[in-house]
Design a protein around this nucleic acid. Sequence first.
DNA 1: GCCGGATGTTAGCGCCGCTTAGATCGCAGA
DNA 2: TCTGCGATCTAAGCGGCGCTAACATCCGGC
Lengths: 199, 199
Amino acid sequence: MGEKRYHHGNLREALLEAAFRLVDEEGPEAISMRALAREAGVSSAAPFRHFPDKQVLLDAIAAKAGAEIDRRLDEVAVECGDALTQFRAMTVAYVRYAAEHPVLFGLVHSRSAISGRFLGQVDDERRLKLIALIIEGQNAGLIPDADPELIALTSEALTHGLARMIADRHPRVRNLDSEEARKLALAATQLLQTGIGLA
Amino acid sequence: MGEKRYHHGNLREALLEAAFRLVDEEGPEAISMRALAREAGVSSAAPFRHFPDKQVLLDAIAAKAGAEIDRRLDEVAVECGDALTQFRAMTVAYVRYAAEHPVLFGLVHSRSAISGRFLGQVDDERRLKLIALIIEGQNAGLIPDADPELIALTSEALTHGLARMIADRHPRVRNLDSEEARKLALAATQLLQTGIGLA
DNA sequence: GCCGGATGTTAGCGCCGCTTAGATCGCAGA
DNA sequence: TCTGCGATCTAAGCGGCGCTAACATCCGGC
């Protein structure tokens, strides 16, 4: 049984999973290459065969979390036909992920993870969909004729801001569970749609 | 002249200033206690007389940056009388700071800096002002009778989201200079006021 | 069967945060 | 003016870190 083989067999995945879980629970500062190696039962130099340096490992974790966010957004999007409902559901899903996995959410949007990574293209694809949706709404007379790009960006900024505040435990929204996060996201989105009426 | 004294005389401030500048320019990972000590011409143990550990130093940097943000917000607030103009100017100032000092902006809102720090009270004070402003607007019939807290939070989330996206070099708003950031902040705020009309 | 590349090991370099023990200084009160 | 004491610094060192170089082992394709 538990015999010591020279080769681990699945070291890359083992490291990635352990690191992913640790970062989720304790934060990025909580992991070290050496500790991960110990936990996997390999020497401290072994991890560097699979991740050239620590930042690459963190990037891989961020990519995994980013993919999970994308998966959730797609999931809720296909569940509801109506375009507006779809949009709201995606907002809620985004904010909920931030509430449930604040550290991973932060890592996905950290500067080091963002630079030159997947976020560019995946995100851009979703943005094009959103803009198409808005233009559709404008043609149907449901949405005022403001710049669609601006409308999309504003919606995103609101969603992202809420998510960030929750993830960072901003004093204003401290300790929201994901149900409260859901309600807040819906209310704020609604408010954006109707406008707060200053002007 | 440059004689070696045993006591530095102003080590705490020297360390804080050097660290502040370095974090602003290179990021929090770029500083080390030992390097700061070398730069200040002092032994590597000396900094620990003034900062019990590295996190406390980072907290002090965050506090300094936070105070600067507060100063800017107050500054633009007194410059313009009209309440709405005041609110817009504060939004712009906030987003501009994020564009000009992305790393410091991020540090101020990092979880470790936030927990148990000044942000609680200072921020709360500003929030009460904002809510009072909204209630005033509602009484004057300018703002619909939604929950003032929700309105305040939504405005803040939008502003904060924009600032974060810019500071983190989110692909959507990459490479905005502070003038472009200003325009975007104004446009998005305007859009929130009129509403985007989905609904 | 064997051999080359992928994947592991051991050893070690230089840096780090932080601690302890003792040196030096500057100032308040005798 | 002297003295003693607390604040501030130094020297030395501990254990951990990221990462590298040189060598060992294993596996899959010729």
